[in-house]
Design a binder for these strands. Structure first.
Lengths: 230, 230
DNA sequence: AATTGAAGTTTTGTATACAGAATCTTAGAA
DNA sequence: TTCTAAGATTCTGTATACAAAACTTCAATT
C-alpha cells in the first residue's frame, strides 16, 4: 500500500528539532555563512528558525563540544575563531588518522569495495572536467569516505569526518583551482594502487602527500584572505 | 578582606549547572556506577541531583556527542553499551594518536618539561609501592598528560583525553594488578629515554607496546567478566 | 491460556516564564 | 567636552508547564 509506504518514510525522516537546528547551524558555520566571532543569540535564532529557545540551546551544546562554537560564561555562544594555529592542529591530527585509515584499508578492503574505489577515482577524474566545484568536492568526499568506511572502525569514521568538516570552507576554494586537478587525480590513483597492492608504506606516503598539499593550499588561501584584508 | 576572597573563589569556581551535571554523570558512567544500558530518565536525575530538567538535558546532549550515552528517538538516553568491538575501535585510534603525541613530544618538549617528566616517572614508581590503585592511576594519568600537553596541540590533547576516558573503567582494574607494575615502570622509562634522545622511532615503539599491553590486560579483564557471568 | 485493546501512567519534546548578570544608554557633574 | 553613574534593556541560566508519543497494565474476548 502506498499509504503505508509514506508513513514509513515519515517515520524514517523523524528528527528532533534540536538535530535539525544542529545541522542547520553547523552548515551555516562550515560554509562561512556565519562568520567567526559572530554571536549566537538564542532568542534571535529561535525567531529566525521558528522554534523556541530549548532546541536552540541543545544544538549549541553539541556545537560547543564539536569545537565549532565557544561559550563565554554568562555571555553566551559565538562562532569559534579559526586561527592558523587551530587549523594546523586539526591538520596534524587528521594526517595521523588518515594514515591510520588507509593502512587499515589495506588490510580490510574487500574486492567489491576496491572496485567501488576504482570507480570513485574515475568519477573524480570525470568531475574535474565539469569544472563544477560542488560536483568535484562531492566526488572527492565520496572517494575518501569509501576508504575510511572500509576500516569498519566507527570511532575512526566519526573522528575523521569531524576533522574534515573543520576545513570544509577552505577545501571548497582549493578544489576550484583547476591547476591542482591533475595532481589530485594522480594522488587518488596512487592511493588506489597502494591499497590494491596492500602496500601500507606506499599508501601512507600517498596520503601524507595528499594532506600536505591540502595544507599548502589552505595556507595560500589564508594568505590571500589576509592580504586582501590589509 | 576575607569576604572578597570568598567571592573571588566563588567567581573562579562558577560553573553552569549543566557542566556540573555533565561532569557528575560522566564520572558516574566512567566509574561504572551507572551500568551500560541503564536509562537516563530526566525527572529522576533532576530530583536526584536537585536541579530542573533543563541542565540535565543539556548535559545529556554533550554526553551523547562524546559517545557515552546513546539516544533512542522518542525514548530518551541510555548509557552506551561498551562492546568488545567498540573498545578495539577506540584502542586502534588511541594507538595512532598516542604515537603522534609522543613523536611531537620529541620535537617540542622543553628542558623543564623533560625534568617534570622525569619526576613523573619517579612518582609513578613510588606510587606503585603504595599499592593504592587510586594513587597509581593518578600518577599514571599525570605522566601521560605531560607528554600529550607538550605537543601544544589542543585538538590532540582533547581527543586523547576523551579516548583515554573511554577505557578508564578497565584501566582501573588493570592498574591494581601489581604483577604488571615493573613492566609499566620500565615502559615509562623507555618513553622518557626516547624523548630525551629525540628518538621518534624508539618512542613510537615504546608507546605502541604500552597500548598493546593495556589492550591485552583489558581483554583479559573482559574475559574474566564474561566467564563470571556464565 | 493467549491475545488484543483500551485506559492510565510515564517520559520525552517543546514552549514559556522569571530571576539575575552583563551591557548599553542617557543624564548630570566636573 | 568628557567622564561617571544610575537606570533601562538585553541576554543567559534555570525552572516549570503542556502536549504528544510510548510503554504498562489489566480486563475482556476468542
Amino acid at each position: 500500500m502506498s499509504m503505508e509506504n509514506s508513513f514509513q518514510v515519515n517515520a524514517d525522516e523523524y528528527l528532533p528539532l534540536r538535530d535539525v537546528v544542529f545541522n542547520t547551524l553547523r552548515q551555516a558555520i562550515l560554509t562561512g555563512e556565519m562568520k567567526p566571532g559572530e554571536r549566537l543569540m538564542e532568542i534571535h535564532l529561535a525567531n529566525k528558525l521558528g522554534v523556541s529557545r530549548t532546541p536552540i540551546r541543545e544544538a549549541i551544546r553539541k556545537l560547543e563540544l564539536e569545537g565549532l562554537v565557544i561559550m563565554i560564561p554568562r555571555r553566551g555562544a559565538e562562532v569559534a575563531q579559526i586561527t592558523w594555529k587551530s587549523l594546523k592542529d586539526v591538520l596534524e591530527v587528521r594526517r595521523a588518522l588518515d594514515v591510520l585509515a588507509i593502512e587499515l584499508a589495506c588490510d580490510r578492503m574487500t574486492q567489491e569495495e576496491l572496485q567501488e574505489l576504482y570507480r570513485a577515482c574515475e568519477n573524480f577524474a570525470e568531475a574535474t572536467k565539469t569544472k563544477d566545484a560542488r560536483q568535484i568536492a562531492e566526488a572527492d568526499v565520496a572517494l575518501h569516505d569509501l576508504i575510511v568506511a572500509s576500516t569498519r572502525n566507527n570511532r575512526l569514521i566519526q573522528l575523521v569526518n569531524n576533522l574534515a568538516e573543520q576545513m570544509y570552507r577552505y577545501r571548497f576554494e582549493y578544489i576550484k583551482d583547476s591547476s591542482q586537478h591533475e595532481r589530485l587525480i594522480q594522488e587518488h590513483n596512487d592511493m588506489y594502487q597502494s591499497i590494491l597492492r596492500k602496500d601500507k608504506e606506499s599508501a601512507a606516503r600517498a596520503v601524507r602527500k595528499h594532506i600536505d598539499n591540502q595544507e599548502e593550499a589552505i595556507i595560500r588561501q589564508l594568505q590571500l584572505e589576509r592580504d586582501s584584508r590589509v
